[in-house]
Nucleic acid binder design. Structure first.
Lengths: 393, 393
DNA sequence: CAACTTTCTCCACTCACAGGACAAAGGAGT
DNA sequence: ACTCCTTTGTCCTGTGAGTGGAGAAAGTTG
């Protein structure tokens, strides 16, 4: 099933079928600028390649019933979203519907060899359930900058040992299918664009707050990756001049004030200083604290936790306000592990942005939580590889 | 001369002739992906329309000499760059070479009617010198956000009375030619892209420091304008939390610390407090101080002026550092009225950016002064309208 | 002056594509 | 059941875009 579209028309048709599901030739004709005859020719060619199959008769629209076509239901994409502390692996069909999904804890710092051993085992496990015989393509997200054309991580701060590792080439060999690699934040943006809140917006920002903080940038419907692949790396933007020292060596970085890691650390401090009985209790039970504990404590009404979230949201909102003034997006999506902090966080961010950014830029600017949660990354990964495969050779 | 290219090939050829000057069919053939026969057909059609004319024989490249063609040398574009306190008007040929250039003081706050009266008078003056009989197109830059497709300013902070004024339509009627309108900062970016330091870079930022501060954003060779046309409006990004009050109503905005206006005000304060004999002397002579005076005083070695420039550069550099982390450009251009502050300013900005931004983003990042100075805007304006006219109908 | 290059034009052939004619298949009213 | 209309899909032909080769025109080099 390694066929590829032979021209832009075929590529366009494949994407329509991917995004719109089964369709008749007539319906496709409404969406592309082609004569019926030409369209029929291209659909026939796609049927010949096996990328597309007949799918029975459609309901009548007042005349002769049409013959539906759909993407080959046996096509399978693998979506992999490697985070700092966990990994998601999913199998989708060609319409990017998730057929199976696994999540496991993981430490990226163990290096690419160990990580991919685990990822391949997870893929094999999914395959063993009968979801897939093999994969027609795979998208991989990694938590750091990537030289996109080659699919190679470059100078990733939290992934020592990954610098220059040929992820694309290695996995392509192991899996026996085409592979594309991108930053995890970009994949989240693509996921929300494909199946989430950003379906209708051309220019938007997707802020992912997890262990670190990153931002996916979409310009004209396309992910913008920057000159060296590090665009959107907003975690080390200075939020406070001469502020707290940050792990990166500078002072006042956003991540020094807020992120999954910073929040856990601040919660520990608060618990140990006796500022929050709720957090102290959780610390005693778990032997540690994470952002999830803060979220739970906040949901239970713990004032200290709420304050931590609000303060972090304010800092984050300040930075986003600057980005909104600069980029003038049509939408801001907030996602990542901290989405559990929910509306307390969102309210703080909104307050800052609406107060500080230009009225013209915020007038019709929705700031919303991501819709897809932890599946955004893997759906984005599947979308990445399908965009690649559904483009002309 | 209202002809337009009939297809993308013709548009491509026109742009090649614009950017590369006179060319033979053979040379054009090296740059486009067309057979010689097809190319000859399209060139002939362009000759018929009058957009392109024969231009004698070229030097031999070892065989038969080729017949050059060039853009019609009688084509004329009008470039207008309206600033807060002055206006530039220039006439260019189709190759965007400046044939005549006028600069006059002006106050945008007098409103569009008065301003365009002045602009049209300047255009008439240039025409009267024999540079042009009429104009084939005009590009207009205004110091505020523009709804680009319609060519209408929207909610411009420093241009009361311009909100919603149909600049494009009105000027098109007055001049009798197609008109395109854009933000002045975007035009400066296009100017530097066309004929200045940014000729070979796809993704870059162009920071214009004049009365205010703005930033042109170029993505993949195209100006990015944002959802409502306000992208790049970085003057009111918060540089200092809870900092100085700004005219916009917020606190700590970049423009509250640095811009042509802020610099003049700070220089006044310094002169009146007796901190700088140099500035005081100039104040006494001129009855006022502007950024130009600070530049001159700094050039003469005045420590206070140098400090003011350095401090402003630091603040600006802080903000740019954040934008560099976010956008990961391949180049940062500094331009606008304060370019006279020169390398003192540039050094301060560079220091901040290289210190604060991610190493991966700054590794190969040139930060340079604009090459074109005050002509960047008008060249960009001519480029804007030529891009429009040299695109298929 | 011969041999080789480069440029340009002409012509025949291929292919993409549009659009009309027509058949197949269905719905709605009588 | 029958007629009329609509929708869908297929076939076929005409048109125009584009390629590539042949060959003439105009140079350079030795």
């Amino acid at each position: 099933m390694t066929a590829r579209p032979a021209n832009t028309h075929q590529a366009h048709l494949l994407r329509l079928l991917r995004d719109g599901g089964p369709n008749s030739r007539a319906q496709l004709g409404d969406q592309v600028d082609l004569s019926r005859s030409k369209l029929a020719v291209e659909v026939d060619r796609l049927l010949e390649t096996g990328l597309v199959v007949a799918d029975g008769l459609a309901a009548s629209r007042g005349g002769r019933r049409s013959h539906n076509v759909r993407l080959n239901p046996q096509l399978r994409f693998l979506g992999v979203d490697i985070g700092a502390t966990s990994v998601d692996v999913a199998v989708t069909n060609a319409e990017l519907e998730t057929l199976g999904h696994l999540n496991q804890p993981l430490d990226v710092r163990e290096g690419p060899v160990a990580v991919f051993e685990q990822v391949l085992a997870m893929a094999a496990k999914l395959r063993a359930t009968g979801l897939a015989e093999g994969f027609d393509g795979a998208g991989i997200g990694v938590p750091g900058p990537v030289r996109f054309p080659e699919g190679v991580p470059v100078a990733p701060p939290i992934m020592p040992g990954w610098d220059g590792f040929p992820v694309r080439e290695a996995l392509s060999q192991e899996l026996g299918c085409p592979v594309m690699v991108d930053n995890d934040v970009n994949l989240m943006a693509m996921g929300e664009q494909h199946a989430g809140v950003a379906r209708t917006v051309a220019d938007f920002l997707c802020v992912k707050i997890g262990t670190g903080i990153g931002c996916g940038i979409v310009v004209g419907g396309q992910v913008y990756r920057g000159t060296t692949g590090s665009a959107g790396d907003i975690g080390h933007i200075q939020a406070v001049p001469d502020g707290r020292p940050c792990a990166c060596g500078n002072r006042g970085c956003l991540e020094a004030y807020f992120s999954g890691a910073a929040l856990a650390r601040d919660a520990m401090d608060a618990a140990q200083q006796g500022l929050s009985a709720e957090l102290a209790a959780r610390l005693a039970t778990n032997g540690g604290l994470s952002a999830v504990d803060v979220a739970a404590a906040a949901a239970a009404g713990d004032a200290t936790s709420l304050d931590l979230i609000r303060e972090g949201g304010n800092r984050t909102g300040q930075v986003i306000a600057g980005l909104v003034s600069f980029f003038n997006p049509g939408l801001v999506v907030i996602g990542g592990g901290v989405t559990g902090l929910g509306h307390t966080l969102l309210a703080a961010i909104r307050t800052q942005v609406y107060r500080q950014s230009l009225p013209l830029a915020t007038r019709n600017l929705p700031i919303v939580l991501g819709e897809l949660g932890p599946t955004a990354g893997v759906i984005g990964a599947a979308r990445l590889i399908s965009d690649h495969l559904f483009s002309p050779v």
